[in-house]
């Protein structure tokens, strides 16, 4: 009797928990879809607007679908209209940005890896202080260093040049890249370095042959981080460069804000998307390593 009673009440509980779970699941999907649309909405507006003609934009609403696939505004944004003065378009500045971002990402990542390696595997007296000061660099408001940096670039003779921007971004990237690599290498057993030293490998050989080959996850993280930071940077770009040497974000701003005639929303949107595409590509290509690299410890021998 007692047993029967219990088993029937268990059945009831089972039923109840089934309904609760179902409800929670649907609620979860609802919330997820809500947030996803919230994030996708602006992108939708951008893409749709960039494909419309000005006529359509004036007549329709923000959400209306374009009447045809019209890439004219993209071509204008990228290559201009073809007449001389006052025609700003993104192509030269896009290449400026590429010429800035590739060396800056490479150097800051490489130097960060080296510094992280030294700070964890070749400890020296006062190394914590060095690390502390490097961390300082992560928290310094970049507005504070604009003037001294402008002076420095002037003295070096590389102000208003891509080289100057590479230097600035490399220098201010090092605190972050060092932090990444240090935190990664600290979980790599130091015994690896000891073994390599006994095997006769020196400072650089250990770095290139032993540590770098197992650093892929953190390299991906660093590259994504640095690429996004440098590509999207506006402050340094607008301060230390103008005219021909400006990176794409500065050019985008000039294009959108300084047009004297009618506002061409379709061209503006197309330009904004073009300026954002490279970071998107980097994320798509390497994104799955990003989380893995951020969370994974080292590969244990």
């Amino acid at each position: 009797m007692q047993d029967n009673l219990q088993s029937s009440s268990y059945k009831e509980l089972e039923q109840k928990s089934k309904y609760t779970n179902m409800f929670l699941r649907w609620f979860l999907y609802f919330v997820l879809i809500l947030f996803a649309s919230y994030f996708i909405f602006p992108l939708y507006v951008m893409v749709v607007t960039s494909l419309k003609t000005m006529e359509e934009i004036r007549q329709g609403t923000l959400l209306t679908w374009p009447s045809s696939l019209n890439f004219d505004s993209w071509l204008v944004a990228w290559g201009g209209r073809g007449y001389g003065a006052g025609d700003t378009f993104l192509r030269p500045y896009f290449w400026n940005s590429i010429k800035m971002v590739v060396p800056a990402v490479f150097f800051s990542t490489f130097i960060g890896a080296m510094t992280g390696y030294v700070l964890t595997k070749w400890r020296f007296k006062g190394d914590q202080w060095v690390f502390l000061f490097l961390l300082f660099g992560c928290f310094i408001p970049f507005q504070a260093i604009l003037l001294p940096m402008a002076r420095t670039l002037g003295t070096l003779g590389i102000s208003n040049s891509v080289v100057g921007l590479v230097l600035v971004h490399t220098v201010y990237g090092i605190p972050f890249t060092t932090l990444f690599f240090r935190n990664y290498y600290i979980s790599v057993p130091t015994e690896l370095v000891k073994a390599a030293r006994i095997d006769g490998a020196g400072f650089f050989k250990i770095f290139f042959k032993i540590l770098l080959p197992i650093s892929a996850p953190i390299i991906v993280v660093t590259v994504i981080w640095q690429f996004t930071q440098i590509w999207n940077d506006f402050l340094f770009g607008s301060t230390f460069s103008f005219g021909e040497a400006a990176p794409i974000q500065v050019a985008l701003n000039n294009m959108v804000l300084s047009s004297t005639s009618v506002k061409e929303y379709n061209v503006d949107m197309a330009s904004a998307i073009i300026a954002g595409i490279p970071t998107l590509i980097v994320y798509v290509l390497a994104g799955k390593y990003f989380i893995r690299g951020l969370t994974s410890g080292a590969v244990k021998g």
Binding site: K194, A195, A196
Partner: peptide, 18 residues
């Protein structure tokens, strides 16, 4: 270390992962 004519085996084995 390399010139001491010694060899060492470590607790974590310390095999080069790559």
């Amino acid at each position: 270390p390399k010139d001491r004519n010694i060899a060492m085996v470590f607790q974590s084995y310390a095999l080069y992962p790559s």
